[in-house]
């Protein structure tokens, strides 16, 4: 079971996560009495990078119209900033006393804090990206909801004109998202649902066309109406399943276990 649910997050955090745990073990196993190196230079580099990240993060928050992102991201930035301060303090303490035990603890705490903060930050951002895709999915759901009130060819043409770009965007976004996920089962569900949506869309339009034509000819439309509603409902179910799976992370399933 992968720890990080997207390949991007995994590629950024996994190496640091491994190094932090390795170092914690090394640190715990190390015999007391070893002098610590001077870490002033690398700590300063980290501090500068954190300052930059915080600046970029704040700009992103201010420019975003995603209320959840605006609410959740500041805490992650503060976490990273606080961790950076711990590293600075540790470095200063080690300069004064290379054997300082509290300084070592601060170093580990700082490293873990930066890892947690950046992890939260990436998750916040990732969730925001997912919300953007879900917004597009919901547009498709809204169009599907009006399929059953389309009664003229003119309205049907407009319906197709409205639905097509939305479906194309959903298809492109979900396809890209699926490729980003590390969780195989989630990927498979997204691929399956997206395939169904792509197959069902032209059949639905065809079904709607038959309904409209029968109606124009004054013929019975009960069966055509039922068929159209069934297809729209199937597409709605598939899109809802896509929305559900997009929101899943491997962490959810760990909690479930």
């Amino acid at each position: 079971m992968p720890v990080f649910h997207t390949k991007t997050i995994e590629s950024i955090l996994e190496p640091v996560a491994q190094q932090v745990s390795r170092l914690v073990i090394l640190h715990e196993e190390a015999e007391d009495g070893n002098a610590m190196p001077n870490l002033e230079r690398p700590v300063l580099a980290v501090s500068n990078a954190v300052a930059n990240l915080v600046k970029v993060g704040r700009e992103t928050i201010n420019n975003s119209d995603d209320q959840i992102l605006r609410q959740e991201m500041p805490a992650s930035l503060q976490r990273v900033e606080k961790a950076s301060k711990l590293l600075e303090e540790a470095s200063a303490m080690l300069n004064a006393d290379p054997y300082s035990q509290p300084a070592r603890k601060k170093l580990i705490e700082g490293a873990r804090g930066i890892l947690q903060g950046t992890s939260n930050l990436l998750l916040c951002f990732d969730e925001s990206e997912v919300r953007k895709i879900i917004k597009e999915c919901k547009k498709v759901l809204d169009y599907l909801a009006v399929a059953e009130v389309i009664e003229t060819m003119e309205d049907l043409v407009q319906f197709v004109k409205d639905l097509s770009p939305c479906l194309t965007k959903v298809s492109r976004d979900v396809d890209a998202r699926e490729k980003e996920l590390t969780h195989m089962v989630h990927r498979e569900i997204l691929v399956r649902c997206l395939d169904s949506v792509k197959t069902l869309a032209p059949i639905l339009i065809c079904g709607m066309k038959i309904y409209v034509q029968l109606l124009a000819q004054g013929k019975k439309v009960d069966e055509a109406g039922e068929n159209r509603n069934y297809l729209a409902a199937r597409m709605t179910d598939e899109i809802n399943e896509i929305i559900r799976v997009l929101q899943l992370t491997t962490y959810d399933e760990d909690e479930w276990d």
């Binding site: 190094q19 170092l23 580099a45």
Partner: peptide, 28 residues
């Protein structure tokens, strides 16, 4: 241990830069 800490801080540095790039890329 000496090399370990320096390596970790270098990785953290790189990690922060990558997070920043992620934000900038997706934000644009």
């Amino acid at each position: 241990l000496r090399v370990g800490w320096e390596q970790l801080l270098t990785s953290i540095h790189r990690n922060i830069n990558e997070v920043e790039n992620q934000i900038l890329t997706r934000d644009s």
